[in-house]
Simulated scan of single mutants.
Amino acid sequence: MTGAAGDRLPAVYTRPGSASFTEFLAEAAPELLPGRRYAGQELDVASLPAPHATTIVALTYPGGVVMAGDRRATMGSQISHRRMEKVFSADEFSAIGIAGTAGLAVELVRLFQLELEHFEKIEGALLSLEGKANRLATMVRSNLPLALQGLAAIPLFGGYDQGEGTGRIFSYDVVGGRYEERDYHAVGSGGVYARGSLKKLWQPDLDPDAAVRTALRALVDAADDDSATAGPDLLRKIYPIVVRIDVEGFTRIPAADLGRHAEEINARLAETEEGDRS
């Protein structure tokens, strides 16, 4: 720091504050926050070429949680992306999936990842799963001005609670309401169909492999009724992003395993179709 007052860092950079990077950014450069990006502007949402992410599912199993997201992004009736990633590691023991306006949602994820990393560096410990869910609710709430103009970003959050030794799932609404879900949940355009599938398939004693297969089947069922949701594409070898979080931490399921599960699901569906015709 130099002796000239004009060369000194602003006070927000030097005074003690909270361990929240989002709170720091709100003081230091509020225009960089996703919800402030277009503050005061009237947006013609219908004319914006903004891809939308679609369906995310999550379910618990003894000792962990599985989250999965399809790969399709749409703009109106057009498929804009076939390989979009919608499920991310929030930190070592949690994951976040996104639905809604894709660009804003991805920006929200990156800020959330930085928020958790910043807290860990300042406090020297991981934030509790409950604390992470609350921080994410605050960030979703900050996007309300854009959500009211039709640019909503809705996450689904899940992780392994180290204190309780179990997997937990949290959903959100556009005003930042935070809700803990029991057993399973799904969001996005195909969410209602995925939840219907999970209602039939979820069992409290699923093993990790069966939980992955159940999440994949829920996306297949959602894709059968929702044009904005894509199931596994065996021809192009494009599979949903599926992750598992347990006492060992965050694990992304390999494409080879997903391909095997997808082939088994297709074979069972083919047998069902054949039985219905006979």
Rank of each mutant, 00 (worst) to 15 (best):
Q78W: 12
T74D: 02
H52D: 06
D70I: 10
A73V: 09
H52W: 08
S47P: 05
P62W: 03
R83E: 15
A28V: 00
S77K: 06
M67D: 00
V66M: 03
A50L: 14
A29V: 08
S77T: 15
E31C: 06
R72N: 05
A53D: 14
I79F: 03
T55M: 04
P30I: 09
G64K: 04
A68N: 10
H52I: 08
I79R: 00
Q78C: 00
R72I: 07
L33A: 02
L59Q: 12
I79S: 00
G40H: 05
V65T: 02
V45D: 05
L33N: 05
D70A: 13
P62G: 02
T60V: 12
I79Y: 01
S47L: 09
I79P: 00
A39P: 04
E42M: 04
A46C: 04
G64L: 03
H52F: 09
G76N: 03
M67I: 13
D44S: 09
M67A: 00
P34K: 12
R72W: 06
R36D: 11
G63M: 04
R37A: 13
R83P: 03
L43T: 07
A58P: 14
E31I: 09
G35K: 10
H52T: 13
G40K: 11
R83T: 14
A68M: 13
A46F: 08
R72V: 06
G40N: 10
V65M: 11
A68T: 09
E42D: 10
A29Y: 06
V66Y: 02
P62E: 00
L59R: 12
G63R: 11
S47H: 10
H81P: 03
T55W: 12
R36A: 14
A39K: 12
I56A: 13
A50T: 11
V45C: 06
A39L: 11
I56C: 12
A39E: 15
T74G: 06
S80L: 04
R72K: 15
R82T: 11
Q78P: 00
P51D: 07
V66N: 02
G69N: 09
L33Q: 04
T55H: 12
V66E: 01
S47A: 15
D70S: 11
H81A: 14
T54P: 05
A46W: 06
E31K: 09
D70V: 08
P30S: 03
A53I: 06
I79G: 00
R36W: 03
A29E: 09
V65N: 02
R36S: 15
A46Q: 10
D44T: 06
E27C: 01
R71Y: 07
T54D: 15
A46H: 07
G63D: 02
L59V: 14
